[in-house]
């Protein structure tokens, strides 16, 4: 087992986890655009004997709205196959009796309808995009600095992502800003948290070595998956940058041009 690298490891795989933005599609104006070959690649994976789950740090919309968008782009996908940070966060808030001040995108707010938000005793930030104004960040900062035991949850910790009109700062940047301002460490929910990957594996009933993660984010997708024992392959789409291939701490098990090529290689290894 230990000696089998990419793509040989595909022979013994039982499940595949796919990142979404930057692997299936590029976000941007309207629904964004599907990445060439990805719609077909998802179809082929679904037709194979491999289990398939989607694993996203998307926090700008509810899962329902997000899945509807992907279906409009032509992807065969349903809500129960998608894992995102907001539902995981809600479970943690309820378990610990925490009431959040939310700094998230308007589209995500309905996910938190069932959560008590009065008299906040923690802050949850997601990718709030244009809602990341000085004013809104300052409000979150004041909630934290006013708490005896400040707790900050960050839905993901991405540095940036790619939209059709260029790279955009992601939630991790604002998480770091609040960490520095309040001298605290945020709890990250979503990739690359091992707990998050583990919940997807449990849903498939698989061990880490039986699953492969494919993503465009070297640190959060590939590195995160690797640190809980899965293989991680990076695609050269989305936020991929040439410098990722000589990253000081994370080395992908494989790097492929796009999802279509990854799926070709996997299915070839399996003789399908």
């Amino acid at each position: 087992m230990a000696a089998v690298g990419w793509p040989g490891c595909a022979k013994s795989l039982k499940g595949v986890l796919l990142d979404m933005c930057g692997v299936l599609y590029d976000s941007g104006e309207g629904d964004g655009v599907a990445i060439a070959g990805s719609v077909e690649a998802v179809k082929r994976l679904k037709a194979s004997d491999l289990q398939l789950r989607f694993c996203t740090n998307e926090t700008q919309a509810t899962r329902e709205a997000f899945v509807a968008k992907l279906r409009r782009l032509g992807f065969d996908i349903s809500v129960s196959e998608v894992f995102s940070p907001a539902p995981a966060a809600i479970a943690i808030l309820k378990e610990r009796g925490l009431r959040p001040h939310l700094l998230v995108y308007d589209g995500l707010l309905p996910e938190f309808d069932s959560v008590d938000k009065t008299n906040a005793n923690c802050v949850v930030i997601g990718d709030a995009a244009e809602k990341f104004s000085y004013q809104n960040l300052n409000e979150a900062f004041r909630v934290l600095i006013g708490l005896e035991n400040p707790v900050l949850f960050s839905l993901g910790q991405g540095r940036y992502y790619k939209e059709t009109d260029g790279l955009k700062l992601d939630v991790g940047v604002y998480m770091k800003a609040l960490e520095y301002a309040c001298d605290l460490k945020a709890e990250v929910i979503g990739k690359p948290s091992p707990m998050f990957f583990q919940s997807v594996l449990s849903d498939m009933g698989l061990q880490p070595h039986e699953a492969l993660m494919i993503g465009d984010d070297l640190v959060n997708d590939v590195g995160g998956a690797q640190s809980c024992g899965m293989k991680g392959v990076q695609v050269r789409t989305g936020k991929y940058r040439l410098s990722d291939e000589k990253h000081p701490t994370v080395t992908a098990d494989g790097t492929v041009d796009n999802l279509a090529q990854a799926v070709d290689m996997i299915l070839n290894q399996r003789g399908q």
């Binding site: 000085y134 960040l137 300052n138 900062f141 540095r159 940036y160 700062l169 992601d170 991790g172 940047v173 604002y174 770091k176 800003a177 609040l178 960490e179 520095y180 301002a181």
Partner: peptide, 14 residues
């Protein structure tokens, strides 16, 4: 109110 440090730190991270 937030000073410049948090924004500098965020951009350093990005």
């Amino acid at each position: 109110a937030l000073g410049p440090g948090p924004f500098v730190t965020g951009l350093e991270y990005a």
